[in-house]
Design a protein around this nucleic acid. Structure first.
Lengths: 119, 119
DNA sequence: CTAGAACCTGACACCAGTGTCAGATTCAAG
DNA sequence: CTTGAATCTGACACTGGTGTCAGGTTCTAG
């Protein structure tokens, strides 16, 4: 599929999809004329990438991580190196802390909203 | 208390504490010589501010939000305007979505870590 | 063949909180 | 008083994913 359709279906801008390619997160085929041609599996992959970006991972970590995920492209999943596992574990813990912050902030907002709306 | 101690106790840099002041998130007293002098309650307040920043709120929203929180300084809490309530509700929903993303990312990382570590 | 939509590359800008440095002033202990 | 630690203001840089624009090429329906 072409970049326009992929953008539409994932909600990610064409600009970002091209950026992902420079970061080696996506490797679309090319038509003879040079247009990008993505496989169907790219949709899921892009959604995953977006989630990981939203979670604060940098593109280089995501690039290392992707080949270790299964169901990415049906391909055999590469096993993460001990170094990468250590990095990912640190990210995991950071995400845990971030979730805690978010929950506290949500509670804070809820309280203010509730107080403001009548009692 | 002085800025150094506040920084130490909250884990927030002095640079950031000064920045918070320009954004009107903190309003410390000043010594005759011009040094900042924070009340004890500033510690909690700074922690809250950090959580809110970490949750993606911008300083202007936080500045509007803070006076509506209770326990901020023992002072009477201002009631949020309908406009502000609408904004905060949108933020709340955004935070909810962010938490969902984070949980999914955490699950992704957990799976890769688990696969890599023996079976 | 042709027109318009879609796509290409490359470049510049932005955001907004934070790090860091420089040079001057204030504070507090001896 | 002196001296070293702490603080002050102001300025510049960075980060890294994304928006946007320009100028050119490819695709596809009629």
């Amino acid at each position: 599929m072409r970049i326009g359709e992929l953008a539409r279906r994932t909600g990610v801008s064409e600009r970002s999809l091209r950026y992902y390619e420079t970061q080696e997160l996506l490797r679309p085929e090319r038509t003879p004329g040079g247009h990008r041609d993505y496989p169907e599996s790219a949709v899921d992959r892009v959604v995953r990438i977006q989630e990981l970006f939203a979670s604060g991972l940098h593109s280089s970590k995501i690039a290392q991580l992707l080949p270790c995920m299964r169901d990415t492209d049906g391909g055999p999943s590469v096993r993460a190196t001990p170094k990468l596992v250590a990095d990912l574990t640190a990210e995991r813990d950071r995400i845990d802390r971030m979730i805690s912050d978010l929950v506290r902030s949500r509670d804070t907002l809820d309280e203010v909203i509730q107080v403001a709306q009548g009692r």
